[in-house]
Simulated assay, not measured.
Amino acid sequence: MRIAIAGAGNVGRAIARELLDNGHQVLLIDRDPKALKMESVPDAEWLMADACEITSLDKAVLNNCQVLVAATGDDKVNLVASLLAKTEYGVPRVVARINHPKNEWLFDSSWGVDVAVSTPRIISALVEEAVSVGDVVRLFSFRKGQANLVELTLPDTSMCIGKTVEEITLPDDASLAAIVRDGRVITPTPTDVFSAGDELLFVASATAESLIKSCFIEQ
């Protein structure tokens, strides 16, 4: 898969190295000559250009990319690059970095963004997840589908302890994606039995998210 990354700073280069290790082709784009540290990611393609300009994206042959990652430190640049990638080049998957939480509401399909990644939100969610037992914690939002990845850790008092997956009726638009138990990720089957301390991962709409807790814990 060919992936373009707008922004060759520390974040962009780190993403590029991970993707290259996974066997993908990576193009790093940045307009700042100081950011073009080619020796740091020697296996990537490099292009000194402005990701907000059509002529630059033409040079990048963006229409041959399956994914664009807008990873600059400027939210305005990330939004414009995302919009151009989606509307002008038909890039199937656009992932955008959110630098400032106050701008999070902008990063949706109207700007061509399929997945928005907010570092502050992820860090706060991980903190909540580490200390919250019995509460539903949102870990991630999938903007295009208006769905969220949420987590619930079962306390000892959960009414579903000892019950099987098929015995629990979830709200509409909610699906149990995984059970994390003793450091192992379990793909749930109808006959799996819930245990205290299980970390349950759900994909759910915002409406369903608010109803999940009542399925496992008496209010």
Rank of each mutant, 00 (worst) to 15 (best):
I15Q: 01
V133M: 02
D21N: 11
T164N: 12
E88I: 03
F194W: 02
S205A: 06
E167D: 13
A8H: 12
C160T: 15
E128T: 12
E104Q: 13
E209F: 08
L83W: 11
V165S: 03
M1T: 07
A178T: 10
S210R: 15
I161V: 04
P92W: 11
S118L: 04
I122H: 03
V91G: 00
R181K: 14
M38K: 14
D50W: 12
I179P: 04
T189R: 15
L57N: 06
C65D: 06
P101F: 13
V95L: 12
A70C: 09
V127F: 11
R93C: 03
I3K: 01
L139Q: 04
P101W: 14
N10C: 05
A60W: 00
A14S: 13
I3R: 01
F216G: 04
V117P: 00
G112H: 11
V131F: 13
V165R: 11
A4M: 09
L47I: 11
P33E: 05
T119A: 07
M38V: 08
V193I: 14
V80E: 00
D43T: 00
K76Q: 12
L28C: 06
T191P: 01
G145R: 13
R121S: 06
E18K: 12
A174W: 05
I54R: 14
A14Q: 06
V67S: 00
T207K: 15
D74E: 15
K144G: 01
C65N: 11
F216N: 05
I186L: 15
G197N: 10
W105P: 04
I168E: 04
N10T: 12
C52G: 12
R31D: 07
I15E: 00
A60M: 03
I54H: 08
L211E: 10
C160I: 14
A14K: 05
S205H: 08
W111N: 02
I98N: 01
R93M: 08
V95Q: 05
C215Q: 12
I122Y: 06
K37G: 01
A96L: 05
A6R: 02
A206N: 13
L126G: 05
S141F: 01
F140L: 14
S132T: 10
I122M: 10
W46Q: 03
V77Y: 04
L149N: 01
A49V: 07
L154K: 08
D114H: 12
F216E: 06
P155L: 07
P188S: 06
A177F: 12
K163V: 03
D75C: 13
F140K: 10
E53T: 09
C215G: 09
T157P: 03
E104A: 11
L84H: 06
E129I: 09
L211S: 08
K163S: 11
E166P: 02
V115W: 07
A4N: 08
